[in-house]
Simulated scan of single mutants.
Amino acid sequence: MSSSLSSTSFDSFGSEDYDDAIESAVVCAITLAMRVAQEEEEEEEEEEERPRFTRRVVLVCRRAEAQENLMRDYFADQPTYTSRQFRQRFRMHKGLFLKIVGGMEREYRYFQQRVNAAGKLGFTALQKCTAAIRQLAYGATSDLLDEYLQMAERT
């Protein structure tokens, strides 16, 4: 009896039906793969249409104003802060600091004031050295001096 059941179930699902089921599954898989590939191509085309480069956000740096503040606070004939306060903040005498600034400006192009790509005058050697030496003196991060020196972290 069991042999008749197995042959009956096999006969009800013959080789033609099996082939049709396989063919149907393959057609579905191919159709799905083609649809996915088409969607990916459309997404790539959309990405290509978008601009790859965006304009930078220009920050308003008041370099000249920051330079005036620095000069008024530490280097004017009658500075806001005393020599003692200068020494506490920079961990050296003002004369030594100015000697370092002069040497850095003479030896390294980075410390020389130049016109930038936007056609604006860049930071002075005094501003750049102030930022660098204060970072070294306090072990602080560069963004700590952003507000006073009006200098971006990248500079």
Rank of each mutant, 00 (worst) to 15 (best):
S3K: 14
S3L: 10
S3D: 12
S4H: 10
L5P: 02
T8L: 12
F10I: 06
D11R: 13
D11I: 12
F13L: 09
S15E: 14
D19Q: 11
D19L: 06
I22M: 06
V26L: 03
C28L: 11
I30D: 03
T31Q: 05
T31M: 04
L32D: 05
A37E: 12
Q38G: 08
E41P: 03
E42A: 11
E43D: 06
E49H: 09
R50T: 13
P51K: 01
R52Q: 14
R55L: 15
R55M: 13
R56M: 09
V57Q: 10
V58Y: 08
V58N: 08
L59Q: 15
R63V: 02
A64E: 15
Q67H: 15
M71Q: 14
D73W: 07
Q78Y: 12
S83N: 15
S83P: 07
R84M: 09
R84D: 11
R84A: 13
Q88D: 15
M92C: 14
F97K: 02
M104V: 09
R106K: 15
R114I: 05
N116I: 01
N116V: 02
A118Y: 10
G119F: 04
K120S: 09
G122A: 02
A125Q: 02
C129N: 03
T130Y: 01
A132E: 03
I133G: 00
A140N: 06
S142A: 12
L145M: 06
D146Y: 03
D146S: 07
L149A: 00
M151Y: 01
A152M: 07
T155R: 02
